[in-house]
Simulated scan of single mutants.
Amino acid sequence: MTTLTHRGRRAEAGRNLDKKPDSEKDAPADRDLNDDDPGDFKDIHLTLMEEVLLLGLKDKEGYTSFWNDCISSGLRGGILIELALRGRIHLEPLSIRKKRLLERKVLLKSDAPTGDVLLDETLRHIKATESAETVQTWIELLTGETWNPFKLQYQLRNVRERIAKALVEKGILTTEKQNFLLFDMTTHPVSNATEKQRLVKKLQESMLERWVNDPHRMERRTLALLVLAHSSDVLENVFASLADDKYNVAMNRTKDLLDMDPEVEAAKARGAEMIWAVLAAFNKS
């Protein structure tokens, strides 16, 4: 698992966070009509996976750190949370036999298309499985980390590149070719710094000015993004531009949040069980 205390990359990440956002207006996203908390879904036009990748990208270079081996599984966790927040999947109900989050299976709630290629591909996989799988198993299957050759079909391929292309289509990234001595690589530098700044500012404020000291009072998408940024080892990029005192406060509050018992918090959380289940899966890995 990642650590919340490494600060070696602060200077590098901080160079990309100088501009202030001049707009925080987004387009609406798909939402579950049965959800009674529309505040979590208003003004959204990026998926959780797109936000995580955007946080992990080096702005000018256009690629994630070569040393980051967590982001692939983090993005798959984001897909599961996004589908749950959109009302497409949910965890099986609590029972006497299966009480723990990581024992409960992921069930299909609706196979209605979301309009996002990765989300819809994952929906088809979940629908096609003969027996339901747990959150942890689905993260492994979607990442391709399985020894069962019959389940390799569930692997999502080229996820980072596909998410980057979606961000290019939305005008947030651009596409370039870079030469790395022995090979050429397609990169996606940030072309819309305002959008990334809006995202960074939102997370910084959630841990500072708008800190509520209770995850159940946080917007679920904000809570989910903090969990995924931590699991994908990109959380350092969020707080790197802060002054030392604020950096320490934000990191300590985030650590306290992520150190909470997912089992206990999920029992309190209406509609956010999948977020805590994903955190539990990464805590165990």
Rank of each mutant, 00 (worst) to 15 (best):
L4D: 02
H6R: 13
G8R: 11
G8K: 07
R10Q: 08
A11K: 12
A13I: 01
R15L: 11
P21W: 06
E24N: 13
D26W: 14
D26Q: 14
A27R: 13
A27I: 04
A27W: 09
P28D: 14
P28L: 11
D32G: 07
L33I: 09
L33Q: 12
N34S: 08
D36N: 14
D37I: 12
F41K: 09
K42A: 12
I44F: 08
L46Q: 12
T47P: 02
L48G: 03
L48M: 07
E51G: 07
K60T: 12
E61T: 12
Y63T: 10
Y63R: 15
S65N: 08
F66H: 11
W67T: 12
C70N: 15
I71H: 05
G78W: 03
I79T: 11
A84D: 11
R88V: 04
H90S: 12
P93C: 01
K98W: 03
L101A: 03
R104W: 03
K105G: 01
V106G: 04
L108S: 05
D111Y: 03
A112P: 00
G115Y: 10
V117W: 05
L118Q: 07
T122W: 00
T122P: 01
L123I: 09
R124I: 01
R124T: 09
H125R: 02
I126M: 05
A128C: 03
A128F: 01
T129L: 11
Q136T: 10
T137G: 03
G144H: 03
G144T: 06
W147A: 14
W147C: 05
P149M: 08
F150N: 11
F150P: 00
Q155C: 13
R160G: 08
A166S: 15
G171Q: 04
T175V: 15
E176L: 08
E176K: 15
K177G: 00
L182S: 10
F183R: 15
F183S: 13
D184I: 09
M185E: 15
T186A: 11
T187Q: 08
T187M: 07
T187W: 04
P189L: 08
P189F: 07
V190D: 04
T194C: 11
T194F: 02
Q197P: 00
V200R: 07
L203M: 15
Q204H: 02
Q204M: 07
E205I: 03
S206M: 04
N213Q: 09
N213T: 00
D214T: 04
R217W: 06
E219T: 01
R220G: 12
R221G: 08
R221L: 10
R221N: 11
L223A: 02
L225M: 09
V227A: 06
L228T: 04
A229Q: 00
H230T: 04
S232L: 07
L235G: 00
A243G: 10
Y247L: 13
N252F: 03
R253N: 06
T254K: 00
D256K: 14
M260G: 05
M260A: 06
P262R: 02
E263D: 09
E265Y: 02
A267R: 14
K268M: 09
K268V: 01
R270G: 06
R270V: 12
A272T: 02
E273V: 01
M274V: 08
I275F: 05
V278L: 07
L279S: 03
L279Q: 13
L279A: 05
A280G: 03
A281S: 15
F282T: 03
K284P: 00
